[in-house]
Design a protein around this nucleic acid. Structure first.
Lengths: 208, 208
DNA sequence: ACCTTTGTTAACAGATTTGTTAAATATAAT
DNA sequence: ATTATATTTAACAAATCTGTTAACAAAGGT
């Protein structure tokens, strides 16, 4: 059989689980349904991954790095001057979110449903965020002093960036039917939305 | 017993179900857990509400109007001039979201997990939105023509408003630990966040 | 006091779902 | 070819969860 790509069943199950978990969450997902989606019996799922829990953890592990990188991307390139850096951050963060559009909602839901599970993640984030926030705030204050931008709280600004970049993907399927032609072409809409978010943040920090 | 408020068990169950469904979603919620939270046996839950499904629908019914009103509030007061109207809309929408901070995430999740359930809601929204969008866009274009504001797409602007007003409540519990003192006082943070969102939207539409 | 309606409990039944096991088949190594 | 190892299937076991039922208790009206 020429050109017949052979993907292992183990891999098929993992991909099916991803789709199922992302849409229905841990509680809503069924091992039998995941197996069915992967085209195998559910005994196979347990053979490769033992339990639903372990299968889930595999997926969490797989995406933990993606999430961390995405959030870091919003901080932009540290070598740039702060205004450009923020512009770059908005754009880079948006692109990464767009690459995994279902990930934020999935992850937030799981964290809210079982917060104790993610204590390690928290501690890591807290220490990293503390340092980053401080240094960026310092740069902002200096730039504000020079009249290059408004003095803003970096935490508020990042919350705005996350809101603007993530939420449109969360409501995407809900909003599409009521938005007329605006979201008809997905690629086009995403580009427009990115430009809009950059514009909003740039106007927010522009000295007036 | 003076001052001893007596709340019916029927009501206690409904309130417990609300909390449970809001946090864990339909699939994650357990009728036994809801009953336990309400301080009754789970047979009582079935006695009053027959099935988990019907109990869930009661809650959906209860909040459907709230959701519709909240979204409409973002359109502001139609008698105001458009710039003030938008400012009023951001503020009013934020306040309503803040009143039911768990509602948006809950509702979006349920709609995404079972879209077929909400077809009536969709049709109603589509017809209402179509008219409202058209009239607001008309006002914006007229104001832009007079140089009072930037010409923007009302649908993009509303998506920005929804994003900024809703997302902070979705990530609230997740963000709090990493934000230092910023979110320590909830009331204060909410006021700051509202002011920030108004500022962002006003800067977005300001003529430059 | 008596009867009716409503509320409450405990025990249980049925369905669903996760997970196991043992036997059968295929694959690879020696 | 033979052995060992990996994969696959079907049947089953155990746990969980939803929903029912029958017996019992409380409240309210006549």
């Amino acid at each position: 059989m020429i050109g017949q790509e052979k993907i292992s069943k183990e891999q098929l199950i993992l991909e099916a689980a991803e789709q199922e978990f992302f849409i229905k969450g841990y509680d809503g997902a069924r091992t039998t349904s995941i197996a069915q989606r992967a085209g195998v019996t559910h005994a196979m799922l347990h053979y490769y991954y033992r339990t639903k829990e372990q299968l889930f953890e595999r997926i969490i592990e797989k995406y933990a790095k993606t999430i961390a990188e995405t959030m870091l991307a919003a901080m932009g390139n540290p070598t740039m001057p702060i205004v450009e850096r923020l512009k770059d951050g908005v754009s880079a963060h948006f692109d990464l979110v767009a690459t995994n559009p279902l990930l934020p909602r999935f992850f937030l839901n799981e964290i809210i449903a079982r917060p104790e599970r993610y204590n390690l993640l928290y501690d890591k984030m807290k220490s990293i965020a503390g340092v980053l926030f401080a240094s960026m705030q310092c740069e902002i204050d200096a730039a504000a002093e020079r009249g290059e931008m408004e003095r803003v709280d970096i935490r508020m600004l990042l919350m705005s960036i996350f809101s603007l970049n993530i939420f449109p993907f969360i409501i995407h399927d809900f909003a599409q039917p009521v938005m007329g032609d605006l979201m008809a072409n997905r690629e086009q809409f995403i580009q427009q939305r990115k430009a809009e978010n950059v514009e909003i943040i740039m106007r927010r920090i522009k000295k007036m």
